[in-house]
Design a protein around this nucleic acid. Sequence first.
DNA 1: ACCTGAACACCGTTCAAGT
DNA 2: ACCTGAACACCGTTCAAGT
Lengths: 217, 217
Amino acid sequence: VLSREEIVEAVLSLADRRGVEGLTMRAVARELGVGTMTLYGYFASKDELMDATVERAAEGVRIPADDGPWRPRLRALFEEIHRSLLEHPSGVRLRLERPMLTPAALRTTEAGLSILEAAGFSRREATRAWRALFVYTFGHAAFTPARVPGSAEREWLALLSGLPGDEFPALTAAAGEAVETMSGEASYGPGLDWLLDGLEALLARRTAAAEGPLEAG
Amino acid sequence: VLSREEIVEAVLSLADRRGVEGLTMRAVARELGVGTMTLYGYFASKDELMDATVERAAEGVRIPADDGPWRPRLRALFEEIHRSLLEHPSGVRLRLERPMLTPAALRTTEAGLSILEAAGFSRREATRAWRALFVYTFGHAAFTPARVPGSAEREWLALLSGLPGDEFPALTAAAGEAVETMSGEASYGPGLDWLLDGLEALLARRTAAAEGPLEAG
DNA sequence: ACCTGAACACCGTTCAAGT
DNA sequence: ACCTGAACACCGTTCAAGT
């Protein structure tokens, strides 16, 4: 009557409702109405169950169609990864330090590398570009405070505005914008575009050098 | 005979040697040769002790001198933050989701915002730029696998090279570069430069518009 | 004032036992 | 074959008691 799928689904639902701290084997079992030890008949350990859950969430990332210029394609791919991370915020925590080298997670890597190499980046440049975009996107999700109904934001604003103005002139003046940027999701796009600007400039430099090698020397 | 300083020092040393998983109140007390409950005479909770430790580590970030052009200054500041995060890798984990709004941590924010505003960015642009650079830098540290003596890397290489080539053509071809980029520290610099490229382009666009408004229209 | 062992309510997991 | 309660070795922290 029970299955790995069903257990993973329960973990996802529990994670979205209660966050990653509430993710205990006892809580998952209670959610399903079974004994705690039943779970160990389907997964060897909690780590294995969490990996399966992250893998399940990674399957929800839709790979954009492979036509059109590289920049909007890459942008769409990362906006989609970003959206998927917002959908299951706890998932980010489960991917820290240990790389997820599973098919669903690697689908996005394959898509990204293929876009970058088709655009003309070398293999080394493509992997570094992927890494930069990945780290920025996952870092943004990991370092965005958990959903709070605004009371925390008022606290931060009070704290920042209340700093000694002679020691923190820029920060006290920008307190409002800082809190907004820290907690809002509007802050993802700009950084993504700046990274893409840098990649585009790298490509433009190489194209210019290839077309006019004498000028490049 | 004991002090908050001494306890924090013990946590830092324990974290560097054993990682963040080994950071238990019992282990910290054993390290100091005192009873576990003694620690609660100096810190109200484990969270408070961990915050104090992160604050202590943040004090180790040296703010670069405030002269010279904005880009190398900002670059030096983030290279220094990056270095400090490598020095105490566990610290990154302790800063997840909960922002550290303490004097030592905010010193770096103040320095960054002041560089950006002096360069000519608006307050909103400056906070977004700071956020992007912060998220990239901390994300890089958080998503770099813990120090492993190379055996893990060989495992990853085998795993990536062994993927089905028809489904993962770009990834299997770039397996070597991917593993290198994933585990090496050489991957921090390029992303930082791409972000700075984007910021520089933004500034250049505005300067051009201000100097020749007719051409910008 | 400063320190601390025992105890409580948790946790992941092993083991032996149920059907 | 599938499920599970009891028990073990942990955790952070409360409490009452030591000096």
